[in-house]
Write a protein that binds this DNA or RNA. Structure first.
Length: 296
DNA sequence: CACCGTTTCAGGACTGGCTG
DNA sequence: CAGCCAGTCCTGAAACGGTG
């Protein structure tokens, strides 16, 4: 059973459309199969009865339900009283997965295998955005206020400057939703992963071995690898590699150092190996990268 | 000739299953 | 939660070929 939806960021999920629905007694939520977008429902008044596949939720004021784009949704019971609820449709162009009650992280969607990745001069370090599938909002009135403003903006205009205001506001909605499971982020596992990441960023120019990392953090290297996998979706070595490549990109654009010099500066012993890793992650060689982005 | 890309393979890192 | 073991996978070094 799904409890948490994990979004690998960047890119962050983006807003599509939202509104406030007012149901009279006897109305019920629509039945839809695989609508292709995430649907966030937040009840302001009354009680909404919604099912997703085999699970059923009775949403009372202040509760939020995040419906998956690939599941079957339905109203399983009529509203007994006047029921107001916000609905927000959003989507992501990145990877996302559903985590079940047992803690397994089953991948659900990801960019097409082998598809050419979008090329940027710089990519920030990846992180994971966790959203609960069902939550009771601690500051529901604040959320209602935010959603009212979001919907009002949405209705006035959807172009130009308003578009990024909508996106910024939508990120605040996600932030409030994510905050309901923030307790988990301060777990020993998350702390271990954060410490490891900090150590790797500080020592990326040096030879960092898993064993050495374990000694520094006073944890078993295998345990650290698991913590980082859970927190960042990658192993310590992959995290280090990505960080080194980001630093190398800076040097490629800011200096006229040779590829071999840059490889050495960011912790690679062999320029050939640096080139192969860089090409794998960026889709073009260091030299091509420099030529391409210095021209722009 | 300097620099970059490809191939190969030993050893280190990671994963899954399990234990305390 | 934290660590161990066995099997598998991947990294990184080295050698060599290609290119401008």
């Amino acid at each position: 059973m799904t409890n948490v939806l994990n979004f690998r960021a960047p890119p962050l999920p983006f807003y599509i459309l939202g509104g406030l629905s007012d149901f009279a007694p006897g109305d019920r939520h629509l039945s839809r199969q695989g609508i292709g977008v995430f649907d966030l429902l937040i009840v302001r008044k009354g009680c909404l009865f919604v099912g997703e596949d085999e699970r059923r939720f009775a949403l009372t004021p202040g509760s939020a339900l995040l419906l998956r784009p690939d599941a079957y949704h339905y109203g399983y019971e009529d509203c007994r009283e006047r029921t107001e609820h916000y609905w927000i449709h959003f989507q992501t162009s990145g990877e996302w997965s559903a985590e079940d009650g047992a803690g397994t992280d089953a991948p659900v969607a990801s960019p097409e295998e082998g598809a050419p990745r979008m090329l940027h001069a710089f990519d920030p370090m990846p992180y994971r955005l966790q959203l609960p599938q069902f939550a009771t909002l601690p500051q529901a009135s604040h959320m209602y206020e935010l959603l009212d403003r979001l919907i009002a903006l949405n209705e006035t205009s959807y172009l130009g400057i308003t578009r990024w205001q909508i996106d910024a506001m939508f990120q605040q909605v996600l932030q409030q939703l994510a905050a309901t499971i923030r307790k988990q982020a301060s777990s020993p596992r998350a702390a271990c992963a954060q410490q490891a990441a900090m150590y790797l960023r500080r020592h990326y120019k040096e030879d960092v071995k898993a064993e050495q990392l374990g000694e520094q953090l006073r944890f078993h290297p295998i345990y650290i690898a698991r913590c980082m996998q859970a927190e960042f979706g990658c192993s310590p070595i992959e995290y280090l590699l990505r960080y080194r490549i980001e630093q190398a990109k800076l040097l490629l654009l800011r200096t006229d150092f040779t590829i071999a010099r840059i490889a050495e500066e960011v912790g690679f012993h062999q320029a050939a190996y640096f080139t192969s890793r860089f090409t794998k992650y960026e889709g073009l060689s260091p030299r091509q990268y420099r030529q391409r982005f210095l021209k722009e």
